[in-house]
Simulated assay, not measured.
Amino acid sequence: MSTTTVNGISMHYEVSGDGPPLLLIAGLGSSSIAWTAAAPRLRESFTVITVDNRGTGQTEVPPGPYSIDDLADDTAALVEFLGLGPVSAVGWSLGGSVLQSMLIRHGEVLSKAVLLNAFPSYTAVQDAWLDTGLALRRSGADPVSIAITGMPWGFTPRLVSDHAAVTAQAELSRLDPHPTTLAGFEAQAAGLRIYDSRPDLPTVQTPTLVLTGAEDVLTPVSQSVEIAELIPTATLQVLPRGGHGMVLEYPDDTLAAITTYLTGKTS
C-alpha cells in the first residue's frame, strides 16, 4: 500500500486494476482488508482504490472522536490527491455513512455511488448493538469471540447454523496484520452513532444505487427505503438473499448488482 497525508493525518491506500476508478469504503472498525475477497473480482472491470479509514489499518489513529464528515473529508481529499476523480464509490455500512457525507459535501469527486447495507441514522437497536460491541472490546475479549458474537447480526442463518463455517470466518480476525485498536474503534463509533444524513440527502445529485439484502437485520431494508426515498437520484435494489455481510456470504449476486449498476452492462 501507499501513503499520503490528507487533512493532517497519514492515510494508507492502494490502487490496482484496470478500467474506470472505483473507490471502496469499509465499515466500522474495518480497514481495507474488509475488501480482500471482493477487490480481486472488481479489478476485472475497474481500477480499484481501497483505503484504511482514519483509525484503522495502517492509517493514523489521531485522538477521537471522529465525525463521519471527518472520514468523508479524508476520503475526498485522497481522491483529489490521486487525480482519478470523479470516481464511482461503494460504501459498506459505516462506509455507506461516509459515502452519504461525500455525496452531500463532496459530490464533485463522485460519478456514481453504491450505498451497500447503509442507514441514514442510528436506531435504538443499533445503539444497543454498538454498546455491546464496545463493552466486549473494552473487556479485552478475544477477537475471535467478538467476531462470533457479532456473526448473527452480519450473516444469515444459512451460514450461522454452520458452526464450522462460523469458526473459520471468525478466525480470519487473527490474520489481520494491522488490527484496529480500541481507540480507533471508539473514535469511529462515537461519530457514527450521532450521524444523521436525512436533512441533507435531498440535495444529492449523484446517481446512487441503494443496495441491500432482504435478510439484513442490522441495517434493515426499511432504512435503505428511507435513504432511497430521500435521494432524488436514487435507485433501490433489494436482493432476495443476504444480510449485512452479503458481499461476503453472497458475493456473486452482490458484486453482479454493483458492477451492473456502475457499468450499465449486464453479464
Rank of each mutant, 00 (worst) to 15 (best):
M1G: 14
T3M: 14
T5L: 04
N7F: 09
H12C: 13
S16Y: 14
S16G: 13
L23S: 05
L28M: 08
S32L: 06
A38P: 02
A39P: 02
R43Y: 07
F46N: 11
T47E: 11
D52W: 01
G55F: 02
T59E: 01
E60S: 11
D69W: 07
V79C: 09
E80M: 05
L82V: 11
G85L: 05
A89M: 06
S93G: 09
L94E: 15
G95N: 00
L99E: 02
M102I: 09
H106W: 13
S111Q: 15
L115P: 02
L115K: 07
Y122Q: 08
D127V: 10
L130S: 03
G133C: 09
A135S: 13
P143M: 07
I146D: 12
A147C: 05
G150K: 02
P152D: 01
G154I: 01
G154D: 10
S161V: 06
D162C: 03
H163F: 06
L172S: 06
S173R: 10
H178C: 06
Q188C: 07
L192M: 14
I194T: 15
I194F: 06
D200N: 12
L201R: 00
P202V: 07
P202C: 02
P202A: 04
T203I: 05
T203Y: 04
V204Y: 01
Q205A: 12
T206D: 11
T208K: 09
V210D: 01
A214E: 15
D216Q: 10
P220C: 05
S222M: 10
I227A: 00
A228V: 09
E229G: 15
Q237E: 15
V238D: 09
V238N: 04
L239D: 03
P240S: 12
R241G: 09
L248M: 08
D252Y: 07
D252E: 15
T254L: 08
K265I: 12
T266Q: 14
